[in-house]
Design a protein around this nucleic acid. Sequence first.
DNA 1: TAGATTGTTAATCGATTAACAATC
DNA 2: TAGATTGTTAATCGATTAACAATC
Lengths: 214, 214
Amino acid sequence: MKPAKLTSLPTIKRLPSYLLVVEAAARAGDEYISGTVIANELELEPIQVRKDLAVTGVTGTPRRGFPVRPLIEAINDFLGWNRERRAILVGTGNLGTALLGYPEFRRHGLRVVAAFDAEPTKQGTTVNGVFVYPAEEIANVVKREKPELAILTVPSDSAQAVAQTLMVAGIRSIWNFTNTKLKTPPEVIVQKEDLSSGLAVLCVKMRQPDVPRS
Amino acid sequence: MKPAKLTSLPTIKRLPSYLLVVEAAARAGDEYISGTVIANELELEPIQVRKDLAVTGVTGTPRRGFPVRPLIEAINDFLGWNRERRAILVGTGNLGTALLGYPEFRRHGLRVVAAFDAEPTKQGTTVNGVFVYPAEEIANVVKREKPELAILTVPSDSAQAVAQTLMVAGIRSIWNFTNTKLKTPPEVIVQKEDLSSGLAVLCVKMRQPDVPRS
DNA sequence: TAGATTGTTAATCGATTAACAATC
DNA sequence: TAGATTGTTAATCGATTAACAATC
């Protein structure tokens, strides 16, 4: 059996925006939506949208497009967004607090079951509905709550040490919002969000506006 | 005169991480750093680092690598990070507040001179040192403060309307943290940060760990 | 000197785009 | 029916990687 071709990263990144457009169509009562319409909405090429949507396995109908309800279901399914995923968050500073209060995540199945902070004044409090434990409790709470992933929003200089603690506690996936490149063994999955990259792109675009768009 | 070849987006996005590594070398007292060392630190290929650094115009020395101080200078220069850039921020919710308190931005020349919120209870207060005006004051304050860009951290459903207000007020660059695809004329520069894309990539990696890394 | 590293030119790889037959 | 849209196969484009002479 030949291995299913892996989905490209750019395709995966575009799927959430397709989902938003298709959900809007659903709210508008549409039964079908064409790749052309999605493409116009997002300023993409129709062929790219069709190719991307192929990964969901939903087949479209000539002249009508893709069935809205099944498409929403299939995108969510592909992204694993229609099942619950337990997470912990370490570092309840400005950014950590913001993420705890971001309703979008909950809609995508992300459920933060515990937060941690090194700061004693935060420990024992509740931030956006999530209880804050001392950082020393990571191992215990992970053992009890069995989260699938950890969201890392600590200061950069403690990022590696906290990641270490998380890995020792058994965490195998880390969503890294620090600007530290974590040293991790190959079996640990790390997704790094980098605001500085975004600022860099914006700054270069502002200086030299003909840099490519996406 | 042939037009200077445009720098690719992936290259621009990697430059900030190079900068962090090179700055660390400077703090360690190193005079030179090789592309190989940078590559190891970031798990990249040395050839990619060398090619990327070529855009800065700094030339390396065989056997030694790149001179640390000039390289820091040149990367900052390329990104426009060694001059001040005035910005306003609209929407002082969780995320907006987090960004106002993010010290990294200041280090890269971003200076938020005013914030705005539709919520009367926030108006007149100071968030992380930045005064919060009513949203109606956008036009006035832009006229007075002459910011180069606006950071958009409002709820998605008001994103397009606020963007409209900003553009009418004369703003030509928008750093968009909402998940709304803004409708803007071609001369307006928009940089969209998409946390959902990041979550999508993480979720797919967790399901199917052999997705490409970066 | 010997050998690690640079910078350039060429090859490869992968993603986007084009072309077009099939179809509702 | 006519024609818009799909899905597939092929062509193009651009980014990454390889090869290697130059050099300190």
